[in-house]
């Protein structure tokens, strides 16, 4: 059996995953996620990495009862569309029950296990968002 996900790909992306690094275009000024070496809006290659805010607003979400293989233990999976101000991100929501969730709530990024690669004995981490706990 081969590994499902490449270790080098994961290794290269891990900082983007953990620190929520997006891209900022120095030509048109727009911010985007995921980051890449060319601006998706004006196609300039004059882009720089930018740390995205870790707190955003939940614009919308869907509850997935038939997710792709590898996410069974986390089912149902809640997938959120989150507004981070200058850009948006699509990510899993965590630490929240279906009753507690609603559009418009504040959510914050956390590092969580995304999936396990049992054949390789690896655990892959990434970003998820959870409701901001108000005190």
């Amino acid at each position: 059996m081969s590994m499902e996900y490449s270790v080098p790909i994961y290794w290269r992306n891990r900082v983007n995953y953990y620190k929520l690094i997006g891209g900022r275009c120095k030509k048109c000024g727009r911010v985007f996620f995921p980051p890449q070496s060319r601006c998706p809006y004006c196609s300039s290659d004059n882009v720089e990495p930018v740390s995205l805010p870790r707190i955003g607003r939940l614009l919308s979400y869907t509850v997935s009862y038939n997710p792709p293989e590898g996410y069974k233990l986390q089912t149902p999976l809640i997938i959120g569309l989150i507004d981070l101000g200058e850009t948006r991100i699509i990510a899993q929501l965590t630490d929240v029950s279906l009753e507690e969730i609603s559009e418009g709530i504040e959510v914050e990024a956390v590092v969580r296990k995304i999936r396990e690669d049992r054949t390789a004995g690896l655990i892959h981490y990434g970003y998820k968002f959870r409701p901001v706990i108000s005190h």
């Binding site: 995921p34 997935s64 038939n66 997710p67 792709p68 590898g70 699509i90 899993q92 995304i114």
Partner: peptide, 25 residues
């Protein structure tokens, strides 16, 4: 479920399918 994983790769594989975000979602 295995096919859903393959199908999710019609979207961005490193930031969408990797995170468990599927075709239907």
């Amino acid at each position: 479920a295995r096919m859903y994983k393959e199908i999710s790769k019609v979207f961005d594989s490193e930031y969408e399918s990797y995170m468990g975000v599927g075709h239907a979602s």
